[in-house]
Amino acid sequence: MIAAIREAVAERLGSCDGVVALRRRNGGVAPHLFQKGDELAEMELSPRYPLMTVVSRLHKAFPAIRLGVVARGCDERAYVEMAKRNQIDPTRLEIIGFACTAEEAQACYCREPSPKHPVAGTPPAPGPPNPLVAKYDSLPLEERRSFWKKQFSKCIKCYGCRNICPECFCEACAMEDMAWVEPGLLAPPFPTFHLIRAMHMASRCVACRECEHTCPAYIPLTVLYDLMRRDIADLLGYIPGADIEAQQPLSLSLEQAPLKK
């Protein structure tokens, strides 16, 4: 599969100023901007990094460049939401998509493990939904509370969930605002910190699961965000990352985006 992607990248390097992908060097893998003459043999597909954040930073730093990016399904969904919020210029980006393997889709509980037009890989069957979502959603109120309080009490407030999130790009973050999250308290007092982030993830979260993977306290954050994704779909018929034409409903009027129930 990687050979086909390398070929597509080499081809794009003719029409683009560079292609964002992963590169293995010095024993580690990190995002890299491949340019003409770079050794494409060093290109890798795993592990996942939020490459669309890299694209966004490059687009902002160089307002004229045209980029390519090697993207998975989650990267493409992240791109859709970022482009809507003016973080990426869609006219200056070409996506070289590839489908994840069935194992990856399973491990990520990924419902859309492939971009719309993959140049490599066969889109696998969607992974199962995260069983924790149904489990904790069915618990009585008190048990849910004791579960989440215990989880949140592990938080070391590293802000890693926010830092790694492709959809978290606000210049002023509510989680750093002393009016909403008091400084100097560890773990952040229930329910301030995590509820603020979960609420802000409504209509944004594309279920890439980067936050959960980078959480040093192993908090199952995506259980909460999956529930928010379900709600925004039920309430407003909006699926983040699905359609670049669909406007995000929370900033529209009721005439433009009516409540479904």
């Binding site: 579960f147 989440w148 329910p191 609420m199 409504a202 529930l227 709600d231 409903p249 929370l250 900033s251």
Partner: peptide, 29 residues
């Protein structure tokens, strides 16, 4: 709804608050 001084300010409230209400329930409030 329809009487908002800013035309559609409360439309946002009408969408946001049910989400928050559900979220409170998810963490057990």
């Amino acid at each position: 709804i329809g009487d908002c001084h800013y035309a559609a300010g409360n439309h946002r409230t009408a969408k946001r608050m049910p989400l928050l209400r559900n979220l409170l329930g998810y963490v057990g409030i």
